[in-house]
Amino acid sequence: MPAPINIFYVDDDSDDQMLFSEAFQEIKDASASALTLYKAGNGEEFFNLLSEKNIIPHITFLDINMPVKNGFECLAEIRASQQLKDKPVVMFSTSESRDVISKSYSLGANKYIVKPPDFLDLKIAIENCLQEFESVK
């Protein structure tokens, strides 16, 4: 039994959550790795979920525009946390703004993905990330 890989997806948009889940499920079905997806509606829910389940995320996908605690705040908190600071974070947003992208990197994001308008592209983007950061095949 391979070690479980915990993927966190933080987004307040239910459509995106659904699409991400479906794409993730397709990847998981085709993969030998033990992939688990956790979803949170915003930064605060994300941290609550971590302490509730007492797990460490392997990769975190962060939307930026979210209520209560947005992606930037969440990212800053991750990088400030002793336990989480080295974990890969992928920013996952609609915005193509240079300002938003460069701010993400300066706050310590490992990757920035513009939410693709095609389901296949979405799946490929997630797959690439899993491969890049966790060598998932």
Partner: peptide
């Protein structure tokens, strides 16, 4: 433009791609 117009459009596109697949 960024968040209220592009978002639903992206949804239309991505769901369409889902149907086509």
């Amino acid at each position: 433009g960024t968040h209220d117009l592009k978002e639903p459009l992206r949804k239309i596109q991505i769901f369409a791609s889902r149907i086509l697949r």
